[in-house]
Protein backbone atom coordinates (compact mmCIF):
# COMPACT_ATOMS: atom_id res chain seq x y z
CA UNK A 1 0.00 0.00 0.00
CA UNK A 2 2.74 2.37 0.94
CA UNK A 3 4.74 1.37 -2.12
CA UNK A 4 1.78 2.27 -4.27
CA UNK A 5 1.49 5.70 -2.68
CA UNK A 6 5.18 6.33 -3.19
CA UNK A 7 4.87 5.31 -6.81
CA UNK A 8 1.92 7.62 -7.24
CA UNK A 9 3.88 10.48 -5.73
CA UNK A 10 6.77 9.79 -8.09
CA UNK A 11 4.50 9.74 -11.10
CA UNK A 12 2.89 13.03 -10.04
CA UNK A 13 6.18 14.83 -10.60
CA UNK A 14 6.17 14.05 -14.32
CA UNK A 15 3.54 16.63 -15.33
CA UNK A 16 5.37 19.25 -13.27
CA UNK A 17 8.64 18.64 -15.04
CA UNK A 18 6.84 18.63 -18.37
CA UNK A 19 5.03 21.87 -17.50
CA UNK A 20 8.28 23.52 -16.49
CA UNK A 21 9.78 22.62 -19.85
CA UNK A 22 6.85 24.13 -21.73
CA UNK A 23 6.81 27.30 -19.63
CA UNK A 24 10.52 27.91 -20.03
CA UNK A 25 10.31 27.30 -23.74
CA UNK A 26 7.44 29.73 -24.23
CA UNK A 27 8.83 32.42 -21.95
CA UNK A 28 12.16 32.44 -23.76
CA UNK A 29 10.41 32.92 -27.07
CA UNK A 30 8.60 36.03 -25.87
CA UNK A 31 11.89 37.67 -25.07
CA UNK A 32 12.76 40.64 -27.25
CA UNK A 33 16.11 40.58 -29.00
CA UNK A 34 17.22 38.19 -31.68
CA UNK A 35 19.57 35.46 -30.46
CA UNK A 36 21.33 35.45 -33.81
CA UNK A 37 22.17 39.12 -33.34
CA UNK A 38 23.60 38.31 -29.97
CA UNK A 39 25.64 35.47 -31.44
CA UNK A 40 27.14 37.54 -34.18
CA UNK A 41 28.34 40.17 -31.78
CA UNK A 42 28.17 43.86 -32.30
CA UNK A 43 30.30 44.48 -35.32
CA UNK A 44 28.46 42.28 -37.71
CA UNK A 45 30.48 41.66 -40.85
CA UNK A 46 27.75 39.15 -41.66
CA UNK A 47 25.39 38.91 -44.54
CA UNK A 48 21.70 38.18 -44.42
CA UNK A 49 22.38 34.79 -46.03
CA UNK A 50 24.66 33.81 -43.19
CA UNK A 51 22.08 34.89 -40.66
CA UNK A 52 19.44 32.82 -42.44
CA UNK A 53 21.80 29.85 -42.55
CA UNK A 54 22.34 30.10 -38.80
CA UNK A 55 18.62 30.37 -38.25
CA UNK A 56 18.12 27.17 -40.21
CA UNK A 57 20.94 25.45 -38.37
CA UNK A 58 19.35 26.13 -35.00
CA UNK A 59 15.79 25.54 -36.23
CA UNK A 60 14.77 29.11 -35.43
CA UNK A 61 13.06 29.50 -38.79
CA UNK A 62 10.35 26.97 -37.98
CA UNK A 63 6.99 27.82 -36.36
CA UNK A 64 6.99 27.86 -32.58
CA UNK A 65 4.96 24.71 -32.03
CA UNK A 66 7.32 22.77 -34.28
CA UNK A 67 10.27 24.11 -32.32
CA UNK A 68 8.56 23.11 -29.08
CA UNK A 69 7.89 19.62 -30.37
CA UNK A 70 11.49 19.29 -31.53
CA UNK A 71 12.76 20.49 -28.18
CA UNK A 72 10.60 18.15 -26.12
CA UNK A 73 11.17 15.06 -28.21
CA UNK A 74 14.92 15.57 -28.06
CA UNK A 75 14.92 16.47 -24.37
CA UNK A 76 13.29 13.15 -23.54
CA UNK A 77 16.28 11.47 -25.13
CA UNK A 78 18.65 13.63 -23.07
CA UNK A 79 19.59 15.84 -26.02
CA UNK A 80 19.10 19.46 -24.99
CA UNK A 81 20.45 20.93 -28.21
CA UNK A 82 23.52 23.06 -28.78
CA UNK A 83 24.38 26.27 -26.99
CA UNK A 84 24.10 29.29 -29.28
CA UNK A 85 26.98 31.15 -27.73
CA UNK A 86 29.30 28.35 -26.71
CA UNK A 87 28.84 26.13 -29.75
CA UNK A 88 28.70 22.97 -27.69
CA UNK A 89 25.99 20.54 -26.58
CA UNK A 90 24.04 21.92 -23.64
CA UNK A 91 24.12 18.57 -21.87
CA UNK A 92 27.93 18.55 -22.05
CA UNK A 93 28.12 22.07 -20.61
CA UNK A 94 25.80 21.15 -17.77
CA UNK A 95 27.64 17.92 -17.06
CA UNK A 96 30.88 19.88 -16.90
CA UNK A 97 29.54 22.52 -14.52
CA UNK A 98 27.27 20.39 -12.37
CA UNK A 99 29.97 18.93 -10.08
CA UNK A 100 31.03 22.42 -9.02
CA UNK A 101 27.48 23.32 -8.08
CA UNK A 102 26.87 20.01 -6.33
CA UNK A 103 30.07 20.38 -4.37
CA UNK A 104 29.13 23.89 -3.28
CA UNK A 105 25.60 22.84 -2.34
CA UNK A 106 26.88 19.87 -0.35
CA UNK A 107 29.45 22.10 1.31
CA UNK A 108 26.73 24.53 2.32
CA UNK A 109 24.49 21.70 3.49
CA UNK A 110 27.21 20.10 5.59
CA UNK A 111 28.20 23.44 7.04
CA UNK A 112 24.68 24.36 8.02
CA UNK A 113 23.77 20.98 9.49
CA UNK A 114 27.01 20.52 11.38
CA UNK A 115 26.68 23.96 12.86
CA UNK A 116 22.95 24.24 13.30
CA UNK A 117 21.91 20.91 14.79
CA UNK A 118 24.22 21.03 17.82
CA UNK A 119 23.36 24.71 18.34
CA UNK A 120 19.66 23.96 18.16
CA UNK A 121 20.00 21.10 20.63
CA UNK A 122 22.14 23.03 23.10
CA UNK A 123 19.87 26.05 22.89
CA UNK A 124 16.87 23.89 23.68
CA UNK A 125 18.50 22.01 26.52
CA UNK A 126 19.86 25.19 28.05
CA UNK A 127 16.85 27.35 27.24
CA UNK A 128 17.27 31.07 28.08
CA UNK A 129 20.96 30.59 28.85
CA UNK A 130 23.54 32.94 27.39
CA UNK A 131 24.42 30.38 24.70
CA UNK A 132 20.77 30.11 23.73
CA UNK A 133 20.21 33.83 23.48
CA UNK A 134 23.48 34.49 21.65
CA UNK A 135 22.95 31.77 19.10
CA UNK A 136 19.32 32.68 18.49
CA UNK A 137 20.37 36.29 17.95
CA UNK A 138 23.02 35.09 15.52
CA UNK A 139 20.43 32.96 13.77
CA UNK A 140 18.23 35.99 13.44
CA UNK A 141 21.04 37.83 11.73
CA UNK A 142 21.53 34.78 9.55
CA UNK A 143 18.03 34.91 8.08
CA UNK A 144 18.16 38.66 7.56
CA UNK A 145 21.55 38.72 5.88
CA UNK A 146 21.64 39.31 2.13
CA UNK A 147 23.91 36.60 0.71
CA UNK A 148 25.68 38.89 -1.72
CA UNK A 149 26.69 41.23 1.05
CA UNK A 150 27.83 38.47 3.38
CA UNK A 151 29.96 37.12 0.55
CA UNK A 152 31.59 40.45 -0.13
CA UNK A 153 32.21 41.16 3.53
CA UNK A 154 33.83 37.78 4.00
CA UNK A 155 36.05 38.42 0.97
CA UNK A 156 37.05 41.80 2.42
CA UNK A 157 37.79 40.30 5.82
CA UNK A 158 39.28 36.89 5.07
CA UNK A 159 40.90 37.40 1.68
CA UNK A 160 41.82 41.04 1.42
CA UNK A 161 42.47 42.05 5.04
CA UNK A 162 43.65 38.84 6.67
CA UNK A 163 44.79 37.14 3.48
CA UNK A 164 44.11 33.67 4.85
CA UNK A 165 41.47 32.29 2.48
CA UNK A 166 41.21 32.39 -1.30
CA UNK A 167 38.42 34.51 -2.72
CA UNK A 168 37.71 32.85 -6.06
CA UNK A 169 37.62 29.62 -7.98
CA UNK A 170 37.65 26.02 -6.86
CA UNK A 171 41.35 25.24 -6.89
CA UNK A 172 44.61 26.90 -7.81
CA UNK A 173 45.55 26.10 -11.37
CA UNK A 174 47.27 22.74 -11.78
CA UNK A 175 46.20 21.18 -8.48
CA UNK A 176 43.17 19.35 -9.87
CA UNK A 177 43.03 15.78 -8.62
CA UNK A 178 42.46 12.93 -11.07
CA UNK A 179 38.80 13.07 -12.06
CA UNK A 180 36.57 10.44 -10.53
CA UNK A 181 33.36 12.24 -9.61
CA UNK A 182 34.27 15.83 -10.46
CA UNK A 183 33.83 16.85 -6.82
CA UNK A 184 37.33 18.01 -5.97
CA UNK A 185 37.13 17.31 -2.26
CA UNK A 186 35.89 13.77 -2.81
CA UNK A 187 38.30 13.11 -5.68
CA UNK A 188 41.32 14.21 -3.70
CA UNK A 189 40.30 11.93 -0.84
CA UNK A 190 39.80 9.02 -3.24
CA UNK A 191 43.14 9.58 -4.94
CA UNK A 192 44.94 10.35 -1.70
CA UNK A 193 46.04 13.76 -2.93
CA UNK A 194 46.54 15.72 0.29
CA UNK A 195 47.63 19.04 -1.17
CA UNK A 196 44.59 19.11 -3.46
CA UNK A 197 42.31 18.25 -0.55
CA UNK A 198 43.59 21.10 1.58
CA UNK A 199 43.39 23.56 -1.28
CA UNK A 200 39.91 22.43 -2.30
CA UNK A 201 38.61 22.74 1.25
CA UNK A 202 40.11 26.19 1.64
CA UNK A 203 38.43 27.31 -1.57
CA UNK A 204 35.14 25.75 -0.56
CA UNK A 205 34.97 27.36 2.86
CA UNK A 206 33.85 30.94 2.18
CA UNK A 207 31.32 30.13 -0.56
CA UNK A 208 29.81 27.33 1.53
CA UNK A 209 29.45 29.52 4.58
CA UNK A 210 27.90 32.30 2.51
CA UNK A 211 25.46 29.98 0.83
CA UNK A 212 24.73 27.94 3.95
CA UNK A 213 24.30 30.76 6.47
CA UNK A 214 20.56 31.36 6.01
CA UNK A 215 19.88 27.64 6.02
CA UNK A 216 21.95 27.18 9.16
CA UNK A 217 19.96 29.91 10.85
CA UNK A 218 16.62 28.40 9.92
CA UNK A 219 17.63 24.85 10.81
CA UNK A 220 18.97 25.98 14.19
CA UNK A 221 15.69 27.68 15.01
CA UNK A 222 13.55 24.77 13.90
CA UNK A 223 15.79 22.30 15.69
CA UNK A 224 15.54 24.29 18.88
CA UNK A 225 11.78 24.57 18.88
CA UNK A 226 11.12 20.96 17.97
CA UNK A 227 13.62 19.85 20.58
CA UNK A 228 11.82 21.94 23.18
CA UNK A 229 8.57 20.32 22.16
CA UNK A 230 10.00 16.82 22.39
CA UNK A 231 11.64 17.43 25.74
CA UNK A 232 8.19 18.09 27.19
CA UNK A 233 6.81 14.79 25.98
CA UNK A 234 5.91 11.96 28.32
CA UNK A 235 8.38 9.44 26.97
CA UNK A 236 11.27 11.78 27.63
CA UNK A 237 10.04 12.32 31.16
CA UNK A 238 9.78 8.59 31.48
CA UNK A 239 13.32 8.04 30.23
CA UNK A 240 14.57 10.61 32.71
CA UNK A 241 12.61 8.92 35.47
CA UNK A 242 14.25 5.62 34.59
CA UNK A 243 17.50 7.25 35.66
CA UNK A 244 19.17 7.56 32.25
CA UNK A 245 21.84 10.25 32.00
CA UNK A 246 20.74 13.53 30.43
CA UNK A 247 23.12 12.84 27.50
CA UNK A 248 21.49 9.49 26.81
CA UNK A 249 18.01 10.97 27.08
CA UNK A 250 18.82 13.66 24.59
CA UNK A 251 20.70 11.63 22.02
CA UNK A 252 18.74 8.40 22.17
CA UNK A 253 15.21 9.59 22.72
CA UNK A 254 14.75 13.25 22.03
CA UNK A 255 17.07 13.93 19.11
CA UNK A 256 15.68 11.36 16.70
CA UNK A 257 12.16 12.64 17.11
CA UNK A 258 13.14 16.26 17.00
CA UNK A 259 14.89 15.67 13.69
CA UNK A 260 11.64 15.01 11.81
CA UNK A 261 10.61 18.66 11.29
CA UNK A 262 14.23 19.46 10.46
CA UNK A 263 14.14 17.04 7.56
CA UNK A 264 11.20 18.91 6.04
CA UNK A 265 12.88 22.24 6.45
CA UNK A 266 16.07 20.93 4.86
CA UNK A 267 14.08 19.69 1.89
CA UNK A 268 12.29 22.99 1.41
CA UNK A 269 15.50 24.92 1.91
CA UNK A 270 17.24 22.99 -0.84
CA UNK A 271 15.20 25.06 -3.26
CA UNK A 272 16.21 28.26 -1.53
CA UNK A 273 19.82 27.07 -1.56
CA UNK A 274 19.63 26.60 -5.31
CA UNK A 275 18.10 30.02 -5.74
CA UNK A 276 20.97 31.59 -3.84
CA UNK A 277 23.75 29.83 -5.66
CA UNK A 278 23.63 32.20 -8.63
CA UNK A 279 24.62 35.05 -6.37
CA UNK A 280 27.27 33.11 -4.50
CA UNK A 281 28.74 31.63 -7.67
CA UNK A 282 28.95 35.11 -9.16
CA UNK A 283 30.72 36.59 -6.16
CA UNK A 284 33.24 33.78 -5.76
CA UNK A 285 33.79 33.07 -9.48
CA UNK A 286 32.59 29.56 -8.83
CA UNK A 287 32.32 27.73 -12.16
CA UNK A 288 28.92 26.14 -11.53
CA UNK A 289 25.58 26.11 -13.32
CA UNK A 290 24.30 29.14 -11.42
CA UNK A 291 26.59 31.42 -13.36
CA UNK A 292 25.95 29.43 -16.49
CA UNK A 293 22.25 30.20 -16.00
CA UNK A 294 22.74 33.92 -15.47
CA UNK A 295 25.05 34.23 -18.49
CA UNK A 296 22.68 32.20 -20.62
CA UNK A 297 19.70 34.40 -19.71
CA UNK A 298 21.62 37.56 -20.50
CA UNK A 299 22.90 36.14 -23.79
CA UNK A 300 19.49 34.90 -24.95
CA UNK A 301 21.06 31.49 -25.28
CA UNK A 302 17.67 29.72 -25.54
CA UNK A 303 18.83 26.11 -25.49
CA UNK A 304 21.19 26.70 -22.60
CA UNK A 305 18.57 28.52 -20.52
CA UNK A 306 16.09 25.73 -21.14
CA UNK A 307 18.62 23.12 -20.14
CA UNK A 308 19.79 24.82 -16.99
CA UNK A 309 16.32 25.72 -15.77
CA UNK A 310 15.27 22.12 -16.34
CA UNK A 311 18.13 21.00 -14.12
CA UNK A 312 17.09 23.44 -11.41
CA UNK A 313 13.45 22.46 -11.55
CA UNK A 314 14.28 18.78 -11.59
CA UNK A 315 16.51 19.11 -8.56
CA UNK A 316 13.85 21.02 -6.72
CA UNK A 317 11.15 18.53 -7.56
CA UNK A 318 13.39 15.62 -6.62
CA UNK A 319 14.32 17.22 -3.29
CA UNK A 320 10.66 17.61 -2.41
CA UNK A 321 9.96 14.09 -3.56
CA UNK A 322 12.78 12.73 -1.42
CA UNK A 323 11.46 14.55 1.62
CA UNK A 324 7.95 13.27 1.06
CA UNK A 325 9.10 9.71 0.61
CA UNK A 326 11.43 9.90 3.59
CA UNK A 327 8.49 11.17 5.56
CA UNK A 328 6.30 8.17 4.84
CA UNK A 329 8.99 5.98 6.33
CA UNK A 330 9.74 8.14 9.36
CA UNK A 331 6.13 8.80 10.09
CA UNK A 332 3.82 6.30 8.42
CA UNK A 333 0.72 8.23 9.45
CA UNK A 334 1.46 10.92 6.86
CA UNK A 335 -0.74 10.71 3.84
CA UNK A 336 0.96 11.73 0.64
Amino acid sequence: MRGLRVLERILSTIPIVFGVAVIVFCVMRFTPGDPIDVMMGREGHVSQEQIDALRREFGLDKPIHVQLYMFLSRAVRGDLGNSLTKHRPVSALIRERLPATVELALGALVFSLVLAIPIGVISAVRQYSFVDRASMAAAFFGISMPAFWLGIISIIVFSVRLGILPSYGRLPYGLEPARVTGLYVLDSVLTGNVSSLVAALRHLLLPSVTLGAPMAAIVARVMRSSMLEVLRQDYVMLARAKGLTEWAVITRHALVNALIPTVTVVGVQTGVLLGGNMIVETIFSWPGIGRLAVDAIFNRDYPLVQGVVMVYALTFVLANLAVDILYTYINPKINL
Partner: peptide, 13 residues
Amino acid sequence: ETSTRVAALQSGQ
Protein backbone atom coordinates in the same frame (compact mmCIF):
# COMPACT_ATOMS: atom_id res chain seq x y z
CA GLU B 1 38.01 33.37 -15.28
CA THR B 2 40.14 36.50 -14.93
CA SER B 3 41.30 35.97 -11.40
CA THR B 4 42.08 32.32 -12.08
CA ARG B 5 44.21 33.37 -15.03
CA VAL B 6 46.12 35.81 -12.86
CA ALA B 7 46.59 33.15 -10.20
CA ALA B 8 47.87 30.72 -12.86
CA LEU B 9 50.54 33.23 -13.84
CA GLN B 10 51.52 33.91 -10.26
CA SER B 11 51.85 30.24 -9.42
CA GLY B 12 54.00 29.70 -12.50
CA GLN B 13 51.53 27.39 -14.20
